[in-house]
Structure formats: C-alpha cells, structure tokens
Simulated assay, not measured.
Amino acid sequence: MPSPLGDKMRTLRKQKRLSLEQLAELTDSSKSYIWELENKDVPRPSADKIGRIAAVLDVTSDYLLSTETSSPDQQVLDQAFFRKYQGMPEDTKKRLRQILDAWDNDE
C-alpha cells in the first residue's frame, strides 16, 4: 500500500512527465527503489535521498514527508525555487535579477 510520500512522488513525477527511470537517474537512485517509494510503505528513506527527490520535483523535503498536505502550497513552491536559485551559477542569477528589475520598472 502506497504511503502519502509515494502518492506525492508519483503525482509530481507524472506532472513533470518523468518516468521512473528518469527520476531514478536524476536522483542517483535505482528504478526499483523509486518504484518501492511510490508503491510500498518503505520505512524511513534517507534524508539525502528525500532531499534529492524533492529537488528534482521542485518541492521541499518537508512537503514530501508531511501527512497533512496533499498538494504543495505557494510557500513550498517558493522554498523549492529559492533552493534552485541558490544553486545556480552567478551569471544566471545576475540575468534573473535583471529580468526582475525590468519587471519592477514596468509597473
């Protein structure tokens, strides 16, 4: 029986149009391990693995592990975006800041 973690992973993976194999590759996991997380009540996956999966699915680890929320709210999406932003090369960050500045000047 799938856990809330598994249900969230499957839903988000499908929304991103990723196969089990693609998600496994992007998270340095095996396809069978991702399948087990999605379809069985796997006891305590590692924090590292959950972190990698959350990063690829653009959510937070807390969201994936939470039993209280079934879809990510704006705060979860913002936190995931900020984490992605922090890992970007400095030139990409600079371009994004320029885009945001241009939008601010349009108002």
Rank of each mutant, 00 (worst) to 15 (best):
I99R: 11
K94M: 10
L12M: 02
E90L: 03
T60E: 10
E21H: 01
P2C: 11
D58F: 06
S71Y: 14
K94A: 15
L64S: 00
K8Y: 07
A102N: 14
K16P: 01
E38Y: 08
T11K: 07
W103Q: 14
T92L: 09
W103L: 10
R10I: 08
D101F: 15
Q86A: 09
Q15E: 13
L77D: 05
L12G: 00
E107A: 11
R83W: 06
I50N: 00
L96E: 03
S32N: 12
P72K: 02
Q74R: 13
S46T: 05
M1D: 12
P45G: 01
D91G: 04
I53V: 11
M9V: 11
R52Y: 08
L96K: 01
R52V: 00
T69I: 08
T69S: 15
F82Q: 10
A80I: 03
R97N: 10
P89A: 05
Y85Q: 03
D91I: 08
G51V: 05
Q22F: 01
S71N: 05
D7E: 15
D28M: 07
N105G: 13
T27Q: 02
M9K: 03
D7P: 09
R83Y: 11
S29M: 09
R10P: 05
R52K: 15
S19Q: 07
L65C: 07
L23E: 00
Y85I: 06
E25M: 09
K40A: 04
V76M: 12
L23P: 00
Q74A: 08
W103R: 06
Y33C: 02
E38R: 09
Q74L: 15
P4R: 09
S71L: 11
P89S: 15
Q79H: 04
Q98I: 11
T27H: 00
A54R: 00
T60W: 06
K49Y: 01
N105K: 14
K93Y: 02
E38K: 05
Y85V: 07
D48A: 10
E25W: 03
L5W: 04
P43Q: 01
S19L: 03
L5M: 15
S30K: 13
S29G: 06
P2L: 10
P45A: 08
R13G: 00
E107N: 15
I34P: 05
S29P: 04
Q75C: 11
R10S: 03
L65G: 06
L100Q: 03
